[in-house]
Simulated assay, not measured.
Amino acid sequence: MNRVHKKSAQVNENSIKNCCETTFRTRFKEKSVLKSIFGVVARARLLVVTVLIVCFCYTTTAVAASLNVINSFGPAPKLKATTDPRKFIPKGYELVSITNGDLNNDKTIDCVLLVQATNPANWVVDYYGKKVNRNRRGLIVLFAKNGTYVLRAKNLTCFSSAEEDGGNYMPPDLGLEIKKSKLYISYGHGRYGYWEYCFRWQASNFVLIGYEGSSNRGPIVEEATSINFLTNKTKIRKNTMLESLDGEGIFEVQYLDRKPRPLLKLTDIKDFDELEIEDK
């Protein structure tokens, strides 16, 4: 009996030992699984943080790039400056004249360049056998700033050539003048009269604010027109005494209201010869 009890006791001891070992292995495996799970979670969290950092850096770079693009089209870009206004004349153009005056009322002398293209294809021989330049002309407007000039407006093709064929009449003479911080562009047609456009610097461009025109017959004014584009008012003076001996005449005055419309920019005018501004 003692042997049986001893054997039974040994079996029980082995069973307990096996049970303990099994429990230990099971718990060890559970801990390993949990450790693996925590490792995966940690790596996932690290990956998420890395992705967020990369996204933040990319977004910051994109925003900075966007701001640079916005600034490049903003109202106050960095303007190239030089002390020599002739350096603003592009290749293929030559200087015709320079007009000086204060255009933006800052007590400094600004500059308007009248330029003309030099394309050889547009040099022709006129009716009198003279070789003339029929290339179009344009304007370059420069503002004086700290002893240098900066470009403010440019329209290189808005005027026809001074050598155009006028048919039975000579082509009108183009004139530029700066008065009271305004740019005046005028055409003189001798005994037939004149017309003049007044531009003012505002809203980062030169806009047409006034027009004066006179239709003459020699020294006698037949009709004179004055337009204010700011008030949309037109004043027309018609001579009812064309045969006046002293040339003064008697004028009938008429005031008209114009249809409101946006102010015309100098840079948007394609051809002054085709510009129609009077209401029909």
Rank of each mutant, 00 (worst) to 15 (best):
N2T: 08
V4T: 13
K7S: 10
Q10W: 08
N12A: 12
N14S: 08
N14V: 05
S15R: 11
I16W: 06
C19G: 13
T22Y: 12
R27C: 01
R27T: 04
A44I: 12
R45F: 13
L52T: 12
C55E: 09
F56L: 14
T59F: 10
V63R: 10
N68S: 15
N71F: 06
F73E: 10
P75V: 13
K78P: 00
D84L: 05
K87Q: 15
K91R: 12
T99M: 05
N100E: 15
G101Y: 06
C111A: 07
L113Y: 03
V124S: 05
V125I: 15
D126Q: 01
V132K: 08
R137H: 01
R137W: 06
R137K: 13
K145W: 02
F159A: 07
D165G: 01
D173R: 06
D173Y: 04
L176N: 02
L176P: 00
L183S: 03
I185V: 15
G188V: 09
Y194Q: 04
W195F: 10
S204D: 14
L208A: 10
I209H: 02
G210H: 05
Y211R: 08
S215N: 10
A224H: 06
S226A: 08
N228D: 15
L230F: 02
T231L: 09
N232K: 04
M241T: 02
M241G: 00
S244R: 01
L245S: 10
G249S: 03
E252S: 12
V253P: 03
R258F: 03
P260H: 07
K270T: 14
E276T: 03
